[in-house]
Design a protein around this nucleic acid. Sequence first.
DNA 1: TGTGCTTAGTTGCAAATGAAACTATATCGC
DNA 2: GCGATATAGTTTCATTTGCAACTAAGCACA
Lengths: 158, 158
Amino acid sequence: MPSSAQAAAAPRLELERFLPYRLSVLSNRVSGAIAKQYSSRFDLSIPEWRVMAVLGGTPNLSAREVAQRTAMDKVQVSRAVQSLLKAKRLQREKHPHDGRSAHLSLTAKGQAIYDEIAPLALHLEELFLSALTPLERAAFDKLMAKLARQASLLGANP
Amino acid sequence: MPSSAQAAAAPRLELERFLPYRLSVLSNRVSGAIAKQYSSRFDLSIPEWRVMAVLGGTPNLSAREVAQRTAMDKVQVSRAVQSLLKAKRLQREKHPHDGRSAHLSLTAKGQAIYDEIAPLALHLEELFLSALTPLERAAFDKLMAKLARQASLLGANP
DNA sequence: TGTGCTTAGTTGCAAATGAAACTATATCGC
DNA sequence: GCGATATAGTTTCATTTGCAACTAAGCACA
C-alpha cells in the first residue's frame, strides 16, 4: 500500500472513461444519426453536407475558406465541391482579381435542399440536447469551447 | 416582425455552434494528437490501438466483446486483430466450448507496448483536461454521460 | 439424427480517404 | 520586367473503410 505521503497511483486506462474514446463514440453517433436522415434521401455524403451547410450560412466563400471553416482538408473540399457542382447544387464564379480561386455558392436547387435539411438538422440537435436542462446546455457549451481552444493550442494539427 | 405570441424564430444553422460539428472537430483533434504520439513510433493504427487498449484493461475477451466495448464494428476488429496477431502483439486461444470464438489477449510484447502507451495517453488526456478546473471536469463528465445515454436512446444504431 | 435458424469471424469488392505530386496563377525581391 | 517562392485547387495512387456475402460452428426442436 502506498504511504499516505505519495499516494496518487497512476490511474488505469479505462476506455469507458477515456476522453478521446468517449468523444469519438458520441461524435459518431450524433453525426451518424443526422446523416442517416439526409444521406439516402438527398444522396448527400457527410463532407458534401458540410460544404453546403457552411455555404448556406455564408455564401461566396472560396474552397479554401470552406476548408477552414469546416475543418476539412482541401482535398476533401475539392472532391465534395466537384460532386456538388456536377449535381448542380453549387455554382462557382471566377474570382475577379485572383484567377486561382473562385467563389462558391448554392444554386437555387442547392438552396432548396439546404432549406430542407437545415431545420431537420437543428431539430435533431435539439433532440439530443433535450437530455440537458438549459443550464446544463450553457455549461456544456462553455466547456466544449474551452476544450476546443485547448485542443487547438496543443494539437495545432488541422 | 413576429407577433409576441409566437416568437421563437427558427435559429440559423451556424456550423461553429452546431453540436455534431463541434464534437467531430474536437474528437478528431484529440484523437489525432494522441495517435500522432504512437502511430509512427509503434506502427500502430487507431483501431489497433483501441483493441490493445481494451485488452490491456481486461484480457481474454472474444473479438465480439472487443467490438462491443470499443464501439467498433466486427470487421474493423477482425482486421485489427489479424495485423496484431501477425506482429505478435496479440495471442488467440480457442474457446474450449465454442469453436466459433476465441479469447484474445496481449502477448508480453503487446503488453510492453501497452505499458508504454497507456501512461502517455493518460498524460495527454490530462493535458487536454487541464483546461478545466476539477469542478468543470466533473460537470463535463456528467454531461457527456447524459449525452451518450441520449445518443444511444435515439440513434440506437451501433 | 437431421433440418433450419442464429452467431462468430473472415473475405471480396467497391467506395472513401489522405499524402504527395502536380498545374496554374499570384506575389515578392530585385 | 523576371526568376524564385508561395498559394489555390486538382489529380494520382496507395491505403483504409464499410457493406454484403460467405464459412464454420453452435443451437433448437422434431
